[in-house]
């Protein structure tokens, strides 16, 4: 359609057949363009890793039909081989299987904690911003106070109140991670709230609830969602740290943290694989998730509207 228009123009003016030149490669946009392929590569590899991880934790345990807890003392601390690609640990359990199970637990903890933290943070942030006045001041001062305590310390305190297990860790991670989301959401809501479209909604008879739910929260959700995804790796690290300190999951339950913790003595003896593979399982998926989140952030940045400068 655009083509026919171009030729129509050619018939009436001096030029015959318009020669279009792309702008890319010369303007400010040019420098961005250069990094584009690298960025695409990063996004796709991140996506591939995340998909592989999700498939692994969902499919492998039921399919493998192997007991990851099974102890074979005869096979203890075998280096990586075809039979045991990641080797075995100090009681002869297959490390690959342990890592997949561990990842499953860590991912579960990470995702659930991130979701809970985001819900809390969004609710608190939105409440503080839309209530304003003293409610806002009190809530945000509380957030400040909580933020001033180191996360891990607060987490240890919370975990210490319960028996070791998955849920105390989830609670501990969630309760220490909603603070930043609350701040982000509050700032977003405050900036949206002063927009004339909120004035117009009020004048159109919208209730406070309707303004918040229909006009303010939808504007905040992309930010909150991004914060949630970025929080998953953080939560996984947090879980690993708690477990490594012996405060998270019970040692017999495989999680990435307990695996690394259990491998400490082997590492001192010079056996590297029980530490390396769980360590990689912490680093690679979390980097992949963060990579995807970064791509998402680029997308929701309001740069898109300037694509068409009209």
């Amino acid at each position: 359609m655009a083509e026919t228009r171009t030729t129509a123009g050619a018939g009436t003016t001096a030029d015959t057949g318009t020669v279009w030149r792309p702008v890319a490669g010369r303007s400010v946009a040019g420098s961005r363009k250069a990094s584009r392929s690298t960025r695409a590569w990063r996004v796709w590899s991140s996506a591939a890793i995340v998909v592989a991880v999700v498939l692994a934790v969902l499919i492998v345990p039921p399919l493998a039909d192997l007991d990851e807890q099974a102890v074979h003392l005869a096979d203890k601390l075998l280096p990586p081989s075809l039979e045991h690609p990641f080797g075995t640990d100090d009681v002869g359990r297959d490390l690959l299987l342990r890592c997949v199970y561990g990842l499953r637990v860590s991912l579960l903890v990470g995702v659930v904690a991130a979701v809970v933290a985001t819900v809390i943070g969004t609710a608190v942030g939105a409440l503080a911003a839309s209530a304003g006045g003293w409610v806002d001041r009190v809530v945000m001062r509380l957030v400040d106070v909580f933020s001033s305590v180191p996360h891990l310390l607060l987490g240890i305190f919370i975990v210490a109140m319960f028996r070791p297990g998955v849920w105390p860790v989830v609670i501990s991670v969630a309760l220490t991670h909603w603070l930043s989301t609350a701040r982000i959401v509050r700032a977003e809501v405050l900036s949206l709230r002063s927009r004339p479209y909120v004035d117009a909604a009020i004048s159109g008879g919208a209730s406070r609830w309707r303004v918040t739910v229909r006009h303010l929260l939808p504007g905040v959700l992309p930010q909150a969602g991004l914060a949630a995804v970025l929080m998953v790796p953080h939560a996984i690290w947090h879980e690993s740290a708690l477990s490594f300190l012996g405060l998270g999951l019970p040692t017999h339950q495989a999680s990435l943290g307990t695996l690394v913790q259990g491998a400490r003595s082997s590492l001192l003896a010079g056996d590297w694989w029980p530490t390396l593979f769980p360590g990689l399982f912490i680093i690679v998926p979390t980097l992949a998730i963060a990579g995807l989140a970064g791509a998402w952030r680029d997308r929701i940045n309001p740069r898109r509207r300037s694509e068409l400068m009209l």
């Binding site: 946009a29 961005r32 400068m309 009209l310």
Partner: peptide, 25 residues
């Protein structure tokens, strides 16, 4: 009026078009 293309013309003269633009002439 707004949207008739006059600001795009200005951007073209300053070399500030976005990367999905193509020019001729």
């Amino acid at each position: 009026e707004s949207g008739c293309g006059k600001s795009v013309l200005a951007s073209a003269l300053l070399g500030l078009l976005p990367e999905n633009a193509e020019t001729a002439g």
